[in-house]
Amino acid sequence: MKIEFAPLNIPLRRRLQTAAVVQWVFSFLALAQCCLAAFVLLCLSDWWILAALYAGWLYLDRDTPISGGRKSHWIRSWAVWRYFRDYFPISLVKTVDLDPRNNYLFGFHPHGVLVAGAFGNFCTEASGFSELFPGLTPYLLMLPFWFRVPFFREYIMCGGLVSSEKASASYLLSRPGGGAVAVLAVGGAPESLEARPGALTLQILQRKGFIKLALKHGAWLVPVFSFGENELFDQMENPVGSRLRRVQERLQRIMGVALPLIHARGVFQYSFGLLPYRKPINTVVGRPIPVVQNPSPTKEDIESLHERYLQGLTELFEENKEKYGITEDKHLTFI
């Protein structure tokens, strides 16, 4: 394989953009493990009393990830996130105004490999969420496992990440006075196994728990499609039924996280590595679907709203796809 090296005369701003993405990829793939190792070493050192005090704090603070987290506007506004945004670049597109008197459940599609669009747009202020949607506060739902990792949990909560447990979503969607936005990557970790350039397959037909939650709390549903999300990494071929796919699905059931075998580019060369490609991500927030509160929704209520949601998501995709380089003959596939 011929290796294409990066030129030496790259402008400083592009080097800073790459550095910002390196730290982001590290945070997703290795920071939790480093934080856990640091806690274990602290326990075994002469400073074990600090580890004991922190363990007590973890117990006392155990409900915070399901009670809105601990958002830090300062961390969300770091300059590093602007370089992160410009690497791809990432943009947030509003189609209509959203009334801050309501609570909303944003259904984010597709999951992609590392949900870069969801992180950039809803866990930082780099794309101007607060200016586009005044009065609304976004929270990105993440697997509960990560909020049990010492130190790491504190960092991710600062960006607005909260647990994806039912109690966490219910807390946000029932907020008095409105203004809360729970952002859910509906396809979840299994959908990342479908993430590759050109893929338009969404795992949603059997995903109806978020519909039931919206009904129970009267939260308005908003379909969100992130154009370019699947273009960031190549992935080894793993068709449904293949040996690799069966192993990945088994590991996902055991561990709770998917393990797509991905590759893209490196820091100093463009031929291989774990950095995403520089491909634009345009995250389009669609029209809200009004939801009337129903504390005890029937199966028919859930199915009806689910159909309306699929229709809204399809319309959002069809109305915007040609603006972002998807040809007219390409359509979403729901599984």
Rank of each mutant, 00 (worst) to 15 (best):
K2L: 13
K2G: 06
R14W: 12
L16R: 11
W24G: 01
W24A: 07
F28L: 15
F39W: 14
L42A: 09
L44A: 13
A52P: 02
Y54C: 06
G68F: 11
K71W: 02
Y87A: 12
S91V: 03
T95Y: 04
T95A: 00
T95I: 03
D99R: 02
D99I: 07
N102Q: 14
N102L: 10
P110L: 11
A116S: 09
A118F: 04
C123E: 01
S127K: 00
G128F: 01
S130K: 10
L132K: 14
P138G: 05
L143Y: 09
F145W: 07
F145M: 12
W146E: 13
F147E: 11
F147M: 07
V149P: 12
F151N: 04
I156S: 01
C158P: 03
S163R: 08
K166S: 11
S168N: 08
S170L: 15
S174A: 14
G177T: 05
G179H: 04
A180E: 13
A182D: 03
G218M: 02
W220E: 06
W220H: 15
F225K: 00
G228E: 05
R243G: 05
R245H: 09
L251Y: 02
R253E: 08
R253K: 14
G256I: 01
A258G: 05
I262F: 06
R265S: 09
L274N: 09
Y277I: 00
G286S: 07
G286D: 08
I289T: 04
N294A: 01
E303F: 02
R308L: 10
Y309Q: 01
Q311R: 07
L316R: 00
E322T: 08
G325R: 01
F334C: 02
